[in-house]
């Protein structure tokens, strides 16, 4: 469908007004929401991620593309839910207890959403109990934790421990990220994976869900 190439372009260039208009028109004309997501939106966000990794796109470009993607998804999501389409996975995401820095977390959440995941965003300063409650309620298979500070990073460890104590650790895959976080740290605290950036987080989430 030629018109929907414009949806791809609108997301790639971060034009949320046109993403919204094209989506409304396409849906009114009877386009298949699932196909719109799979064939245009996810590829557009994949390309955004590729450009980010290649230093062609930076944080502002990611943000405007994510905004365009969300503007479109707002109309598509209810239809997907009504049709009973399963998301690529369910992710509970938040910055850990004590950490209020959420731009990285928001980018990861947006990229995951753009990749077809259902994202349950708990926001900032999320306690271990809150993570656990959300995991139980939403039956999510993935949890994503973020921290910017070396001082708050330790909350990731306590959250993993709390998940073990609550008996939910083995039901989920845990991914972590944030400025001071490393692969080594992920191993140390018993997380399943780590990523340096939002695009890598999508690849990691896909891998963990497939595992």
């Amino acid at each position: 469908m030629e018109d929907l190439k414009k949806l791809y372009d609108a997301i790639l260039t971060g034009n949320f007004k046109s993403a919204k208009e094209i989506t409304q028109q396409a849906l009114a004309a009877g386009a298949d929401p699932q196909a719109m997501v799979q064939q245009y939106m996810i590829p557009a966000m994949d390309e955004v991620g590729r450009r980010y990794e290649a230093n062609e796109y930076f944080v502002p470009e990611l943000l405007i593309s994510a905004r365009a993607m969300k503007a479109s998804l707002e109309f598509i999501r209810p239809l997907l839910i009504a049709s009973g389409a399963e998301p690529a996975g369910r992710v509970v995401i938040g910055t850990v207890k004590g950490d209020l820095h959420d731009i990285g977390k928001n980018l990861v959440a947006a990229m995951l959403e753009g990749a077809g995941f259902e994202v349950i965003d708990l926001g900032v300063d999320v306690s271990p109990e809150k993570f656990i409650t959300a995991l139980n309620e939403k039956k999510a298979g993935l949890v994503a934790m973020s921290a910017l500070l070396t001082t708050t990073m330790n909350s990731m460890k306590t959250t993993v421990e709390a998940m073990k104590a609550a008996g939910v650790r083995n039901n989920v895959k845990i991914m972590i990220g944030g400025a001071p976080v490393t692969e080594k740290y992920a191993e140390e605290i018993g997380a399943d994976g780590y990523s340096t950036n939002a695009n890598g987080a999508v690849a990691l989430a896909r891998k963990l869900v497939a595992a």
């Binding site: 230093n55 796109y57 930076f58 944080v59 502002p60 470009e61 400025a179 340096t196 950036n197």
Partner: peptide, 12 residues
């Protein structure tokens, strides 16, 4: 700068 690259593009 961010952790892995510039936060903004050079033109901005």
């Amino acid at each position: 700068g961010g952790q892995t690259a510039l936060l903004f593009g050079v033109p901005e």
